[in-house]
């Protein structure tokens, strides 16, 4: 187990270097000179362009640029934006907000999704089952920005139950509604995954054995059935956290949340390679760590899986 974790952690290093380089390369390959449009319809003074290119090592060959960036990164220096703001500051402002938003969304989809899945999976083919199937189909079909504007207009502007836009602090309470919006699509997937998984395992040998042993219903469902049905759901939830963090641009834009989705989007538009790489590197780490955790959880959930 320990060796398995160590090996997985060591694997992070090449993945880390590879992804940072790829991202750096992609931003570098964006069409257009980042300073061509910076002065509106007039060309920027050559002196300005020269100073900026020098400052951001843009005249060096790509590999040397990347090398210099990586060297600074290893010393904990994320670099600067074109406006002279430290990327480290931007990240430390935006990440906590995004993590809060993603955790709230994850909680919503886990709670509502799993409960709906269990209820329908156990009973099957009743009114409840149809209700969940139809409503999840509905949720999957509606794009997030529609749900977002709908929630904002109805609950924020018309009913006044929530603040339509989130303040700079972005406290847990304020992020409930955006978190729900963000979770809406995945919630439907979780419900369907859980339902299918439970319906399948209901007829599995170990469940029949448990029932035959005379175990009470709640133990059969709670311990035997649920735990073994949880694997696909946990896999989905684990990777979804990463997707929720990086893919919340639309929700962030609607509710004015200062998160990393918007940060990456704006940096790409400005072709600020340092910012994009810095933010995405951390996202990659989140993905990798979540994947590792999910893999470890398999061993907890299913006694047949071992890592030695």
């Amino acid at each position: 187990m320990g060796r398995y974790v160590a090996r997985r952690l060591l694997q992070l290093i090449p993945v880390f270097i590879g992804t940072t380089f790829l991202i750096y390369l992609l931003v570098w390959a964006l069409p257009g000179d980042p300073f061509a449009g910076k002065c509106g319809e007039r060309p920027c003074p050559e002196s300005f362009v020269a100073v900026m290119r020098e400052k951001f090592n843009m005249d060096d060959p790509l590999f040397i640029q990347y090398g210099k960036y990586l060297l600074n990164l290893l010393q904990g220096d994320f670099g600067e934006t074109f406006s002279g703001t430290s990327v480290g500051t931007l990240i430390s402002n935006a990440y906590p907000v995004t993590i809060r938003l993603a955790l709230i969304a994850l909680l919503f989809e886990a709670l509502i999704g799993v409960i709906a899945g269990i209820l329908t999976g156990l009973r099957g083919r009743g009114f409840m089952d149809n209700l969940v199937l139809v409503s999840t189909l509905f949720l999957i079909a509606i794009p997030t920005f529609v749900t977002g504007y709908l929630v904002q207009t109805v609950f924020g502007l018309q009913l006044g139950w929530i603040a339509p836009t989130v303040s700079g602090n972005a406290s847990w309470g304020e992020l409930l509604a955006p978190g729900f919006v963000l979770a809406s699509v995945s919630m439907a997937y979780v419900a369907r995954l859980t339902r299918t998984s439970i319906a399948e395992n209901k007829r599995a040998d170990f469940v029949r054995t448990a029932v035959a042993k005379g175990q009470p219903q709640h133990r059969v469902v709670g311990v035997h059935l649920l735990r073994n049905s949880a694997i696909p759901v946990v896999t989905f939830l684990g990777t979804d956290l990463g997707a929720l963090m990086g893919g919340a641009i639309v929700t962030e834009g609607i509710f004015n949340i200062n998160g990393i989705g918007g940060l990456v989007f704006r940096s790409i538009a400005r072709q600020e390679g340092t910012t994009v790489t810095g933010v995405v590197v951390l996202l990659v780490i989140v993905y990798l760590v979540m994947n590792l955790l999910v893999d470890l959880l398999y061993a907890v959930l299913d006694p047949r899986i071992r890592y030695d």
Binding site: P31, G32, D33, A36, G37, E41, P43, A269, Q271
Partner: peptide
């Protein structure tokens, strides 16, 4: 694609 490209 972008204003930068247009200016270029």
């Amino acid at each position: 694609q972008t204003f930068n490209v247009q200016r270029e």
